[in-house]
Computed example of a mutant assay.
Amino acid sequence: ISLSVEPLELHALLDDAIDLNAGYAETLSVDLVKGQFDKDIVIQADEKRMQQVMSNLLSNAAKFSKPGSKVIVSSEIFEDFARILVIDEGIGLSEDHRHKVFDQFSQVDSSDQRAVN
């Protein structure tokens, strides 16, 4: 993978991510909400890849949330790092499956028992 790393204002990146994914969330009757953003956070990242990550996070958060709920996107400084928070009101992951979150092409449960809107 070729990366194009450059300085990015995190609040602008997150604003764009919310705008780009709001339509999908709307089809599920879920609101994407801007939480608290630290406007001074600048990260070194590939904007296209970051938008892919944010799109995956926001679409999954919306997909596994109940209609009428909201997904809140925020940012903060944590020690020497920028932290992006995506908080939803969905069903969540069990402790047993959290280690699989970053596995490539992994889905924890595809059965009909797992509720998806």
Rank of each mutant, 00 (worst) to 15 (best):
G68A: 07
G68Y: 02
G68P: 03
G68D: 01
S69N: 09
S69M: 09
S69Q: 10
S69K: 11
S69R: 10
S69G: 13
K70F: 09
K70Q: 15
K70A: 10
V71A: 08
V71D: 05
V71C: 08
I72W: 00
V73E: 01
V73Q: 02
V73M: 02
S74V: 06
S75Q: 01
E76T: 14
E76P: 10
E76M: 13
E76D: 12
I77Q: 03
I77T: 06
F78C: 04
E79D: 13
E79C: 12
E79M: 13
D80E: 07
D80V: 04
D80Q: 06
F81W: 11
F81M: 13
A82H: 03
A82S: 09
A82E: 05
A82T: 03
R83L: 10
R83Q: 07
R83H: 07
I84N: 00
I84C: 01
I84K: 02
I84D: 00
L85T: 08
L85S: 14
L85I: 12
L85G: 10
L85D: 06
L85A: 15
L85W: 13
V86A: 02
V86R: 03
V86E: 00
V86M: 03
I87N: 11
I87S: 09
I87H: 07
I87L: 09
D88M: 06
D88Q: 07
D88W: 11
E89C: 09
E89G: 13
E89K: 10
E89V: 07
G90Y: 01
G90E: 01
G90M: 00
G90N: 02
G90K: 01
I91H: 14
I91E: 12
I91V: 11
I91F: 11
I91S: 15
G92T: 02
G92Q: 04
L93C: 05
S94R: 14
S94P: 12
E95R: 12
E95W: 07
E95L: 12
D96S: 14
H97Y: 15
H97V: 15
R98W: 15
R98N: 09
R98D: 09
H99L: 13
H99M: 13
H99A: 14
